[in-house]
Design a protein around this nucleic acid. Sequence first.
DNA 1: AGCCGCGGTGATACCCTCTAACTGAATCTT
DNA 2: AAGATTCAGTTAGAGGGTATCACCGCGGCT
Lengths: 215, 215
Amino acid sequence: MTDARTRTPRERYRTQVRAEIKEHAWEQIATAGASALSLNAIAKRMGMSGPALYRYFAGRDELITELVRDAYRSLADTFRAASGEGAGLAGLAHAMRAWALDDPQRYFLVFGTPVPGYRAPDDVTEIAAETMTAILDACAALPSDRPGTPFDTHLEGHRQWAAGHPAPPAVLHRALTVWTRLHGVLSLELAGHFAGMAFDPALLYAAELDDLLER
Amino acid sequence: MTDARTRTPRERYRTQVRAEIKEHAWEQIATAGASALSLNAIAKRMGMSGPALYRYFAGRDELITELVRDAYRSLADTFRAASGEGAGLAGLAHAMRAWALDDPQRYFLVFGTPVPGYRAPDDVTEIAAETMTAILDACAALPSDRPGTPFDTHLEGHRQWAAGHPAPPAVLHRALTVWTRLHGVLSLELAGHFAGMAFDPALLYAAELDDLLER
DNA sequence: AGCCGCGGTGATACCCTCTAACTGAATCTT
DNA sequence: AAGATTCAGTTAGAGGGTATCACCGCGGCT
């Protein structure tokens, strides 16, 4: 865990404080959402005053970028852990829902309303590709007897996003629908759009998953 | 159009200015997102200074509430127009996608990341129920030969959200999946999550719609 | 031992929302 | 017609936010 690079006291202190700042930021985000994140409040809660944080993060945007990166990595790790335990697509879906419910604001930070001017750094898209690969693997392991759709043939020519995954287009298509359908239920649930309706969102999620499995 | 209630010059002026404020607000939201909406900037662009807007809206929240209401009503009107032209589920889905792409930030204002402390007023949920009814009607008009799922039986006992719609649970289930699946594709597309992947989101949307139609 | 860099500070500029006191004009009332 | 009232709009200011600046003081390196 302790890298040789993290040897000098100054560096250790620096990374430690950075981590502590992020800790407070997550706390704040979980309760009030990302838009309400305040560097000032974090500083005050840490016992230091305002501009001190600028020694550790160039600004609010860089802090948020870092949090987005961590959130992505957290999801990727969750998927990796589920895959490592031999869980199939169902296990992945279950892990994803648990991850989302564990901290809804973290989910929204990744999959929610984007900030118009903001563009995610490249390494984030790499981590995103990692999660996609997990879904692709799980889908490739499933039997499939559906006829090819027009979209499948379209994917035949637009599959570079699969990062060289050897799966046939039908599997690519299925992976995409896994993503969009689960996200469709999850995001509406977390946003509270099912609040008035009294049905159990978990069952709707399960129904969608079943439909994806028996395809 | 001109109601008798809107007779006095003061009232006419008032509603006119309110409309103008909302106009500027939509402009600002479309370019910078809802979180960047600034009463100050609107006032300056209208040639008056800051606090004047508080004569028309109690605060930022009330303005946003009004915009949310308008957005919902706009979607409901879009659905009503599509239904009026005899369009089926496919027509509704097409209208919804067009509505979303026309102003992505308006879509996010309704279906995007919720503001933690904020709760939508009751009449908004009524308008939302109106859009749901449109989807339910379109689904009820479709043939269905699927076996009932466990979720269907669950819906049997939790159907008050359908506002007395006489459709069987399978139709209720289908309407929910229409909503979640189309939203799943749309929201990810609008949020730019398909940006790196080169496939055409419209085709994925169409594929999901096809799957919903032939169910 | 001495220097330098880094963490931290207060002051400051410029945003924002929102309140309060005030002004001038249009509208209502008598 | 004249007074009373309501209402749009103003400036001033409180309180909070991001972010920059110049300035210290201590820890760590040579």
